[in-house]
Design a protein around this nucleic acid. Structure first.
Length: 278
DNA sequence: ATAGTCACCTGAGCGC
DNA sequence: TGCGCTCAGGTGACTA
């Protein structure tokens, strides 16, 4: 489930509760996540220095290195009293000083937990990632440049983590709607002006979702145990066959790269070609 | 190099 | 109530 806003909501929720605390125990109940979970023997006894985020990875920085946690499709992290009863799919506990446990739950086990000694950015998973969508270097000129010669659908381009990180299926659909761009347009034919709009839309949709604590669909519960409230603001995702909130037309759906894609054929046709003047 | 498909896994929802 | 099918927020690996 978690897209970037959910991961950021998790970071803001759990970070202050465990940062600065001493790791007293680490319990791996199920090591078969996307990759086998292997924690170094000397992690226990170290202090957690900070919790940060790169793309959809949460980085738990200890003295000797970092835990790199990905929530996959169904993962979640909660900080709980250390004696809290286990639930199904509670795969990992990090027990900290102060009677609190950081508990990782993930029914589908698409998530992952790695340890990287030293700088977490040296890990191979983080090596080829594109810029953060909220960073200034991610702008229309950058996207236009990365799209040059590309025939993939523009939706696939913005979901490519080598181009820009953190744009998952929900927000890709939503951003393209806000920008008025048809998801299926070949990336190389989208104009610079349209990419300017798209960057604005991506920033807006992600920022708004972070403000509202993410989108709750099925599994996501933020670290306070509350649902996110962004779902109420969705314009197209999950609304195939329903009326467009802008024009009233019926939203259409198709599959693009195995992912559900929803758009308004009337509102999303501008910038669907490069004008002759280009 | 690029574009498209497959795989990983569990649970929810639906039609019968 | 149960069975079988489809779908789901991600993303690396693999194939042409």
């Amino acid at each position: 489930m978690p897209e970037l806003p959910e991961v950021e909501t998790t970071r803001r929720g759990v970070g202050p509760l465990v940062s600065g605390h001493l790791l007293e125990d680490a319990i791996v109940r199920e090591s078969r996540l996307r990759w086998p979970v292997v924690l170094p023997g000397d992690l226990v006894g170290q202090r957690l220095e900070s919790v940060s985020r790169r793309a959809k990875y949460l980085l738990f920085r200890f003295q000797s290195g970092s835990l790199i946690v990905h929530l996959g499709m169904s993962g979640s992290l909660r900080v709980l009293p250390a004696d809290t009863a286990l639930l199904p799919h509670d795969h990992l506990d990090l027990v900290f000083s102060g009677d609190r446990v950081l508990r990782y739950n993930d029914p589908r086990r698409f998530g992952s937990v790695h340890f990287q000694a030293g700088d977490p950015m040296d890990h191979w998973l983080l090596g080829a990632l594109g810029p953060e969508p909220l960073d200034p270097e991610f702008d229309g000129a950058y996207l236009k440049r990365r799209a040059r010669g590309r025939r993939v659908a523009v939706k696939s381009l913005i979901m490519d983590s080598k181009v820009v990180v953190g744009v998952g299926n929900i927000y890709a659909n939503e951003a393209l709607f806000l920008a008025g761009i048809r998801p299926t347009v070949p990336a190389g034919r989208v104009t610079r002006a349209a990419y300017d709009n798209l960057v604005r839309a991506i920033r807006e949709v992600l920022s708004d979702a972070i403000e509202l604590g993410g989108t709750t669909l099925r599994d996501f519960v933020n670290p306070d145990g509350d649902p996110g409230y962004f779902k109420q603001s969705l314009n197209v995702y999950g609304r195939e066959g329903l009326p467009c909130r802008a024009c009233g037309g019926t939203l259409r759906g198709l599959r693009l790269g195995q992912r559900a894609t929803t758009f308004c054929a009337k509102c999303q046709k501008a910038q669907s070609f490069t004008p002759p003047s280009w």
